[in-house]
Nucleic acid binder design. Structure first.
Length: 354
RNA sequence: GGUGAGGUAUCCAAGUGGCUAAAGGAUGCAGACUGUAAAUCUGUCGAGCUUCGCUCUUCGAGCGUUCGAAUCGCUCCCUCACCA
């Protein structure tokens, strides 16, 4: 987690952290992590960990600009590091030292075994949004083959301490999602994750998630990869998603955004503390929030910290945003238990005017 | 008092006759951010308007040369450095 310690994550109420196979593989390397006795020990976290397979990074970086291509946006100003994908795996260049690397399903599982996360993912191929349907289909089929190989490699060394998730692909196409959902359900995965392109807009994403959830094994835990807006989570939960992971809360925090429940008349899910309107706002970000940031500091102070480019600003907002997400999850679980969950739930933010 | 350097938009700073409402920074104002190469990136930034374009006023001040001046000349004002 950028900008916060695992101790602070604990205090924020976090119960699980996602770590990244791709980045840890390139730097510092999974052997290095193993020498520490595994990820849990190295990062001082004795709760559950999930590792991504590395597929997303290879392909998103390969297409020249992180998630943009997969998400349907075009921002191609970064050097492309993906060299070649073949049936065996993905050839790519390390962005750290330029060295050629080869990630296969077996290698991904081996790395994740070395890292020692509790929940791990199969290697899949992430198809960009702009791919034609035929390509998406071909790519999905290859992902399926890779998932089988991942599973075999996983089984070969499994000591029962790790659990493997399969990944449902198929882009925005319902027939492909149906096939992929069924395929993953037929394998003996512990859980399943929904990956791949979810479309271009938020609306389409919600539709694709809802549609895909129909074809997913209902008795296994279901994870939605990479998604974490407030409304996205409410929509996902409505459709049966159990877990989410997302950089948005922490990245937003480092960029000056503080999560706040959306106003029913305003689709924005955060306030931008860098904005001039907060320069004299002495209230906490959210007076109902129990986090260290809201309990002790004003919006004006956070505003000043960002103005002064003090990294403490990003740290405090990260604490707030993670705390916020944890509270959101608790409230959702509570609503489900009480039988009154609604994805239309809105929580009013304290008035923004002074 | 002497000698030298210089005064450009909110600030710093290019520009030494037309392509200049004026490069580039910074600040300011706002936007983006969703399996993290992001404590990042983008837009905007003289004034006004009927704002995919038009009008007005700018480069210390004034006067002049020129078809045309931030750019050339003269006078004045003001900074800074060194020497007395």
């Amino acid at each position: 987690m950028k900008a916060v310690t695992t101790q602070q994550m604990l205090e924020a109420g976090a119960e699980i952290i996602l770590a990244n196979t791709y980045h840890l593989f390139l730097q510092p390397g999974h052997e290095f992590v193993s020498r520490h006795g595994g990820l849990h020990k190295m990062i001082h976290w004795n709760r559950p960990l999930l590792t991504d397979s590395g597929g997303f990074q290879i392909f998103s970086l390969g297409h020249g600009g992180v998630a943009n291509e997969i998400k349907g946006k075009c921002n191609c100003n970064r050097p492309k590091t993906l060299l070649k994908i073949d049936e065996g795996g993905a050839h790519f260049r390390s962005y750290v030292d330029g060295q050629r690397c080869y990630l296969t399903p077996e290698k991904s599982i081996e790395i994740q075994r070395g890292l020692g996360a509790d929940l791990i993912l199969t290697l899949d191929e992430c198809t960009p949004f702009h791919a034609k349907k035929q390509h998406t289909e071909y790519s999905m089929e290859r992902s399926h083959r890779w998932e089988l190989r991942s599973f075999q490699e996983f089984e070969r060394h499994s000591d029962g301490r790790q659990a493997l998730y399969g990944i449902v692909q198929g882009g925005v196409y319902e027939d492909l999602r149906e096939r992929s959902g069924h395929f993953v359900a037929e394998q003996e995965f512990f859980g399943q994750a929904i990956g791949g392109s979810l479309g271009e807009t938020k609306e389409q994403m919600h539709d694709v998630v809802s549609m895909t959830c129909q074809y997913v094994c209902k008795t296994r835990p279901t994870h939605l990869l990479g998604i974490g807006g407030i409304s996205d989570i409410l929509n996902g939960v409505k459709n049966g998603i159990d877990t989410f992971d997302c950089v948005h809360p922490t990245r937003l925090a480092r960029h000056g955004g503080a999560l706040a429940h959306p106003d029913e008349n305003d689709r924005k899910e955060y306030i931008n503390l860098k904005n001039a309107q907060f320069s004299e706002d002495m209230r906490p970000i959210d007076e109902n929030c129990s986090c260290y940031c809201c309990q002790n500091f004003s919006r004006a102070y956070i505003h000043y910290l960002f103005r002064a480019r003090e990294m403490l600003g990003g740290q405090l907002l990260t604490i707030h945003n993670v705390t916020f997400m944890m509270r959101l999850a608790r409230e959702i679980r509570s609503m489900i238990r009480n039988g009154n969950f609604s994805e239309k739930t809105h929580f009013r933010l304290p008035s923004q005017s002074k």
